[in-house]
Design a protein around this nucleic acid. Structure first.
Lengths: 192, 192
DNA sequence: ACAACTACTTGATTAAAATCAAGAAAAATA
DNA sequence: TATTTTTCTTGATTTTAATCAAGTAGTTGT
């Protein structure tokens, strides 16, 4: 849990007492390779902290898995949309390897957030950060061709491109694996 | 400025003193029909409050205007991405009619936000709300065909569909006006 | 009221990406 | 290590939406 402090402080530093209260809400869990942290059709009432390892979020669309998120620890995992709207989640979150993570109840977390300026500020910074990420992604989808989307994503998250299987990247970028394979082939060719 | 209080309180109620301090940051401006609240290539350091009237945000992409936002007063207008990253904005924000609006300096607003729990909480709620909107839009883009995107957007923001010119809606949904026109024609036909 | 402009529609053609299909390469697991 | 499974690549074909083009309706401004 030591890296949690680093992760939190990078967003917005917390007094020790606040950090301890925050930390106390998280319960340790384990997950097997290809196991799930979250499964579609459930109501979401937890947020998860993942110290390390890789995870993938995806939606089932007509039997096809469409990847919507790549998570690299240390990071948080959550489906805030499902939590907030009280709709059953469409998102599955799957581990790429055996791992541990920590889960906190969303309601308790929000209640705790109300109690201190530093914590509220921390949540604010958190949402500002994820908002910025979303905004960039949205602009790229409206603005860019599949090839541009790939190159743009490469700039923003090179590690995902390096470490994640092509088929997941393809669906994340809104195209088929075949199309992405051809785009890569084309780029390879044009670089030589 | 009376509706500002309603708009603010709907997100998160503020004590009078906080609200007055917030209000004091906003300066009245006027804009002509087809005039601009924000023009691309500038650095953004203001957020705007629009009591009424309609506005449109768009990006120039190879000479084409791609609509990225529809704003219906009372609401806030901002390019938080540009402000936060200190990159020149790509977004133009244009009025559909003569109107008045109010502008506040982003730095001053953020500084004010630091001073009170209620204000920080207000900003948190604000970002949570825009985040939710973004998330829904992102899911729709990854998940849906052009027709589904249109139907989905119709559900979420019927007023935009009713009141905005087709060509702006088309680019907002990532398609050409011709394609949207055909989609509408098809839907009309299948409804009869 | 008229002219000029803008928005929308519809059809024909082209271009881009999806789908279908097969095989090669790589990774997982027994 | 051998076998099975998964991932990736490549080609052929189909589908979808973009582009090109022309015409109509509607709006704006003089």
């Amino acid at each position: 849990m030591e890296e949690l402090k680093t992760l939190v402080n990078r967003l917005s530093p917390l007094p020790d007492s606040d950090f301890e209260a925050l930390k106390a809400l998280f319960q340790k869990r384990t997950v097997k390779k290809k196991g799930f942290v979250q499964i579609e059709n459930n109501l979401v009432n937890e947020i998860h902290y993942v110290p390390n390892g890789n995870y993938r979020g995806y939606i089932n669309k007509d039997g096809e898995e469409i990847t919507t998120h790549f998570y690299f620890g240390p990071t948080f995992l959550a489906d805030y949309l499902s939590y907030k709207t009280k709709q059953r989640t469409k998102h599955n979150i799957q581990a790429f390897q055996d791992g541990i993570y920590y889960s906190a109840n969303f309601d308790e977390l929000e209640a705790l957030g109300e109690t201190s300026l530093a914590l509220t500020r921390f949540f604010l910074k958190f949402f500002q950060a994820v908002y910025l990420y979303k905004e960039q992604r949205a602009v790229s989808f409206v603005n860019d061709s599949p090839e541009e989307r790939y190159l743009n994503f490469f700039k923003i998250r090179p590690k995902v491109i390096e470490q994640m299987p092509l088929k997941y990247i393809a669906s994340y970028l809104g195209m088929t694996p075949e199309t992405l394979s051809r785009i890569r082939n084309k780029i390879r060719f044009s670089e030589e």
